[in-house]
Computed example of a mutant assay.
Amino acid sequence: MSRWQELTGGTSGSEYAARFEALGRGGMDLHGEASFCAALVPAGASVLDAGCGTGRVMIRLSELGYDCVGVDLDESMLDVARAQAPQLPWFRADLAEFDPELLGIAADFDLVVAAGNVLPLLTPGTEATVIRRLAAALRPGGLLVAGFGLDAAHLPVPPTTTLPEYDAGCAAAGLALVDRFATWDAAPYDGGGYAVSVHRLDA
Protein backbone atom coordinates (compact mmCIF):
# COMPACT_ATOMS: atom_id res chain seq x y z
CA MET A 1 0.00 0.00 0.00
CA SER A 2 1.27 3.48 -0.83
CA ARG A 3 1.97 6.02 1.86
CA TRP A 4 -0.71 8.19 0.25
CA GLN A 5 -3.31 5.45 0.68
CA GLU A 6 -2.26 4.93 4.28
CA LEU A 7 -2.53 8.66 4.89
CA THR A 8 -5.89 9.30 3.22
CA GLY A 9 -7.64 5.99 2.72
CA GLY A 10 -8.07 6.91 -0.94
CA THR A 11 -11.15 9.03 -0.22
CA SER A 12 -9.81 12.57 0.03
CA GLY A 13 -10.35 13.88 -3.50
CA SER A 14 -13.07 16.41 -2.76
CA GLU A 15 -11.40 17.59 0.43
CA TYR A 16 -8.08 18.00 -1.36
CA ALA A 17 -9.67 20.03 -4.17
CA ALA A 18 -11.55 22.22 -1.70
CA ARG A 19 -8.34 23.01 0.17
CA PHE A 20 -6.65 24.27 -3.00
CA GLU A 21 -9.74 26.24 -4.00
CA ALA A 22 -9.56 28.02 -0.64
CA LEU A 23 -5.86 28.73 -1.15
CA GLY A 24 -6.64 30.19 -4.56
CA ARG A 25 -9.31 32.47 -3.10
CA GLY A 26 -6.71 33.61 -0.58
CA GLY A 27 -4.42 34.77 -3.37
CA MET A 28 -2.07 31.80 -3.69
CA ASP A 29 -0.77 31.10 -7.19
CA LEU A 30 -2.11 27.63 -7.98
CA HIS A 31 -0.30 27.31 -11.29
CA GLY A 32 3.36 27.45 -10.32
CA GLU A 33 4.06 23.88 -11.37
CA ALA A 34 2.35 24.35 -14.74
CA SER A 35 4.22 27.61 -15.38
CA PHE A 36 7.51 25.90 -14.52
CA CYS A 37 6.82 23.08 -16.98
CA ALA A 38 5.69 25.51 -19.67
CA ALA A 39 9.08 27.23 -19.46
CA LEU A 40 10.82 23.93 -20.26
CA VAL A 41 8.94 22.69 -23.33
CA PRO A 42 6.96 24.57 -26.00
CA ALA A 43 3.18 24.58 -26.28
CA GLY A 44 2.01 21.51 -28.15
CA ALA A 45 4.49 19.25 -26.39
CA SER A 46 3.22 16.01 -24.85
CA VAL A 47 3.12 15.89 -21.04
CA LEU A 48 2.46 13.02 -18.66
CA ASP A 49 1.20 14.16 -15.25
CA ALA A 50 2.32 11.26 -13.05
CA GLY A 51 0.35 11.30 -9.83
CA CYS A 52 -2.01 13.88 -11.32
CA GLY A 53 -4.38 13.94 -8.35
CA THR A 54 -7.36 16.21 -8.95
CA GLY A 55 -5.80 17.50 -12.17
CA ARG A 56 -4.85 21.02 -11.10
CA VAL A 57 -1.50 21.00 -12.93
CA MET A 58 -2.61 19.08 -15.98
CA ILE A 59 -5.77 21.10 -16.57
CA ARG A 60 -3.74 24.31 -16.57
CA LEU A 61 -1.15 22.83 -18.95
CA SER A 62 -3.95 21.75 -21.27
CA GLU A 63 -5.31 25.30 -21.22
CA LEU A 64 -1.85 26.50 -22.22
CA GLY A 65 -1.88 24.23 -25.28
CA TYR A 66 -0.10 21.08 -24.09
CA ASP A 67 -1.10 17.55 -25.05
CA CYS A 68 -1.61 15.98 -21.62
CA VAL A 69 -2.30 12.61 -20.04
CA GLY A 70 -2.96 12.13 -16.33
CA VAL A 71 -2.31 9.02 -14.25
CA ASP A 72 -3.11 8.47 -10.57
CA LEU A 73 -3.88 5.58 -8.24
CA ASP A 74 -6.49 7.41 -6.13
CA GLU A 75 -9.93 7.05 -7.70
CA SER A 76 -11.39 9.80 -5.51
CA MET A 77 -8.85 12.26 -6.88
CA LEU A 78 -9.51 11.15 -10.44
CA ASP A 79 -13.26 11.58 -9.90
CA VAL A 80 -12.63 15.27 -9.23
CA ALA A 81 -10.31 15.58 -12.22
CA ARG A 82 -12.82 13.95 -14.56
CA ALA A 83 -15.61 16.16 -13.29
CA GLN A 84 -13.53 19.29 -13.87
CA ALA A 85 -12.17 18.29 -17.28
CA PRO A 86 -14.07 15.32 -18.74
CA GLN A 87 -12.54 15.96 -22.16
CA LEU A 88 -9.02 15.11 -20.95
CA PRO A 89 -7.55 11.59 -20.69
CA TRP A 90 -7.36 10.40 -17.06
CA PHE A 91 -6.14 6.91 -16.18
CA ARG A 92 -6.08 4.98 -12.93
CA ALA A 93 -2.77 3.15 -12.53
CA ASP A 94 -0.12 2.37 -9.95
CA LEU A 95 3.03 4.18 -11.06
CA ALA A 96 5.10 1.19 -9.94
CA GLU A 97 3.28 -0.86 -12.59
CA PHE A 98 2.71 1.92 -15.13
CA ASP A 99 2.95 0.72 -18.72
CA PRO A 100 1.73 3.28 -21.29
CA GLU A 101 1.18 0.66 -23.96
CA LEU A 102 -1.28 -1.24 -21.76
CA LEU A 103 -3.33 1.97 -21.57
CA GLY A 104 -3.07 2.62 -25.28
CA ILE A 105 -0.66 5.53 -24.79
CA ALA A 106 2.49 6.15 -26.81
CA ALA A 107 5.61 6.11 -24.63
CA ASP A 108 7.17 9.21 -26.19
CA PHE A 109 6.34 12.09 -23.87
CA ASP A 110 8.35 15.29 -24.10
CA LEU A 111 7.97 15.84 -20.37
CA VAL A 112 6.84 13.85 -17.34
CA VAL A 113 5.95 15.85 -14.24
CA ALA A 114 5.56 14.41 -10.73
CA ALA A 115 4.40 17.25 -8.50
CA GLY A 116 2.80 17.24 -5.07
CA ASN A 117 5.17 14.94 -3.17
CA VAL A 118 4.49 11.99 -5.47
CA LEU A 119 7.86 10.33 -4.79
CA PRO A 120 7.74 10.34 -0.97
CA LEU A 121 4.15 9.08 -0.98
CA LEU A 122 4.80 5.97 -3.07
CA THR A 123 4.68 2.45 -1.71
CA PRO A 124 7.94 2.04 0.24
CA GLY A 125 10.63 0.37 -1.82
CA THR A 126 9.10 1.18 -5.21
CA GLU A 127 10.81 4.52 -5.77
CA ALA A 128 13.51 3.25 -8.15
CA THR A 129 10.94 1.21 -10.08
CA VAL A 130 8.69 4.23 -10.51
CA ILE A 131 11.58 6.39 -11.71
CA ARG A 132 12.50 3.71 -14.24
CA ARG A 133 8.91 3.45 -15.51
CA LEU A 134 8.56 7.22 -15.83
CA ALA A 135 11.86 7.39 -17.72
CA ALA A 136 10.59 4.66 -20.05
CA ALA A 137 7.61 6.87 -20.91
CA LEU A 138 9.88 9.64 -22.21
CA ARG A 139 11.18 10.14 -25.71
CA PRO A 140 14.99 10.37 -26.00
CA GLY A 141 15.94 13.80 -24.71
CA GLY A 142 12.68 14.15 -22.80
CA LEU A 143 12.52 15.68 -19.32
CA LEU A 144 11.44 14.32 -15.95
CA VAL A 145 10.46 17.04 -13.47
CA ALA A 146 9.79 16.12 -9.85
CA GLY A 147 9.19 18.34 -6.85
CA PHE A 148 9.03 16.86 -3.36
CA GLY A 149 9.78 17.47 0.28
CA LEU A 150 12.89 16.18 1.97
CA ASP A 151 12.14 16.84 5.64
CA ALA A 152 9.29 16.74 8.14
CA ALA A 153 8.45 20.39 7.56
CA HIS A 154 7.62 19.72 3.91
CA LEU A 155 5.98 16.29 4.14
CA PRO A 156 2.85 14.77 5.71
CA VAL A 157 4.80 11.53 6.33
CA PRO A 158 8.30 10.85 7.65
CA PRO A 159 10.92 11.65 4.98
CA THR A 160 12.25 8.64 3.12
CA THR A 161 13.74 9.71 -0.21
CA THR A 162 16.98 11.73 -0.20
CA LEU A 163 18.24 13.67 -3.18
CA PRO A 164 21.30 11.42 -3.60
CA GLU A 165 18.99 8.39 -3.65
CA TYR A 166 16.69 10.07 -6.14
CA ASP A 167 19.58 11.08 -8.37
CA ALA A 168 20.97 7.54 -8.21
CA GLY A 169 17.61 6.14 -9.27
CA CYS A 170 17.47 8.62 -12.13
CA ALA A 171 21.01 7.77 -13.25
CA ALA A 172 20.16 4.07 -13.25
CA ALA A 173 17.18 4.85 -15.52
CA GLY A 174 19.34 6.81 -17.97
CA LEU A 175 18.42 10.26 -16.66
CA ALA A 176 20.99 13.02 -16.11
CA LEU A 177 20.45 15.98 -13.79
CA VAL A 178 19.91 19.22 -15.72
CA ASP A 179 19.02 21.61 -12.90
CA ARG A 180 17.61 21.80 -9.39
CA PHE A 181 15.56 24.50 -7.68
CA ALA A 182 14.15 25.20 -4.24
CA THR A 183 10.67 26.12 -5.47
CA TRP A 184 8.43 25.92 -8.53
CA ASP A 185 9.27 29.61 -9.00
CA ALA A 186 12.79 28.44 -9.90
CA ALA A 187 14.53 29.86 -6.83
CA PRO A 188 18.06 28.44 -6.59
CA TYR A 189 18.33 25.28 -4.53
CA ASP A 190 20.12 25.99 -1.28
CA GLY A 191 20.13 22.61 0.42
CA GLY A 192 16.71 23.16 2.01
CA GLY A 193 13.84 20.80 2.66
CA TYR A 194 12.14 20.99 -0.73
CA ALA A 195 13.61 20.47 -4.19
CA VAL A 196 12.37 20.63 -7.76
CA SER A 197 14.65 18.51 -9.95
CA VAL A 198 14.89 18.42 -13.74
CA HIS A 199 16.47 15.36 -15.34
CA ARG A 200 16.90 14.58 -19.04
CA LEU A 201 16.71 11.15 -20.65
CA ASP A 202 19.82 10.26 -22.60
CA ALA A 203 19.25 10.78 -26.29
Rank of each mutant, 00 (worst) to 15 (best):
A146G: 02
Y16R: 09
R200V: 10
T162I: 05
I131D: 03
V71S: 04
R82Y: 04
G32T: 02
A186N: 01
L155K: 05
G116R: 15
F36C: 00
A128T: 15
L175I: 01
V118H: 12
G26S: 13
E165W: 03
G147M: 10
N117K: 12
V145C: 14
L150Y: 00
W90Y: 11
P42W: 13
L119R: 08
Y66P: 07
L88A: 02
E127A: 11
L119G: 07
G192C: 07
R82N: 01
V118A: 11
L23R: 15
F148E: 02
A173N: 04
F36N: 00
R139F: 02
L88N: 04
I131V: 15
M28P: 02
P89M: 12
D74W: 05
Q84M: 10
G149A: 05
G26K: 11
I105D: 09
R180I: 12
R60Q: 15
P156D: 05
D74V: 05
T161N: 02
D108T: 09
L175H: 09
R133Y: 04
V41Y: 02
E21N: 07
A38S: 11
T183E: 00
A172Y: 00
V145Y: 00
F181D: 03
M28S: 13
Q87E: 14
W4T: 13
Y166A: 12
G142S: 04
L23C: 04
A96T: 08
H154N: 15
G10A: 02
D190N: 11
A182Y: 00
F91A: 06
P156F: 03
